[in-house]
Design a protein around this nucleic acid. Structure first.
Lengths: 112, 112
DNA sequence: TTCAAATATGCGTGCATACTCATTTTAGTG
DNA sequence: CACTAAAATGAGTATGCACGCATATTTGAA
């Protein structure tokens, strides 16, 4: 049926978007850009990684429309495309926090 | 430095969590469970997939703590562990919507 | 046009994951 | 215990992704 196929396509797009988040370096980049826009060299130094790696991750974020670019001469400044991305990441982070907390409490209960 | 390492560990956990979302079948499962809890057979029929595939995806969701299980005799009912997961997915879906809309408008502009 | 800095990309390798098919485990029932 | 339905897992295969290294492209300036 059409609706079924539509739902599948939407979830496919959504999964694609999520796969852009499925890398710790890219998450750090997004949080870094949430503070303020940065160029590639600044991001590289900020994360302590090497330039080609950062450039590739930026390309992935760009292809997914998660970041915007602005060229100034020879440097390219990247910025966060949408603050809701950080909202979503913060939501997941809070879920993560609660999960870890409850696990920690379980350990305490088992020991007592 | 310690803070740097801590941020990296958190983003690693967050990326792990996001990789659980990076599959269209798992997203469909989560939205399906958001309606109401279901057992494996029901999910399989609902998504029109085959049982081993669904079972594997459920294991991944389980390992990430995104779903809870309750055994009733021979069937196991799965339920959504935290509604914030759907909140986060809905946020991403709205970002996706806006991205596609602006792309569509670009096409209109180019044609005129 | 030659050089230098900033950014992007080609290539090879290793690792993780998803799928299909068959089989196994688990739990309830006669 | 034998049988059946539900759910999970093992094996093999294919695909995609991330990284490191080297190199290419782009832009501005001398």
């Amino acid at each position: 049926m059409l609706v079924q196929t539509l739902a599948q396509e939407i979830s496919q797009l959504e999964a694609n978007l999520c796969s852009a988040f499925a890398d710790p370096t890219r998450i750090l980049i997004l949080y870094s850009l949430n503070e303020h826009p940065r160029n590639v060299t600044e991001i590289t130094n900020d994360l302590g990684s090497n330039q080609p790696t950062i450039s590739r991750h930026l390309k992935i974020l760009r292809d997914h429309g998660l970041v915007n670019t602005a060229r100034q001469g020879v440097t390219i400044t990247y910025s966060l495309a949408d603050s809701r991305l950080i909202q979503a990441l913060d939501l997941l982070r809070s879920v993560l926090h609660d999960t870890l907390t409850s696990k920690a409490n379980l350990i305490v209960e088992i020991k007592s």
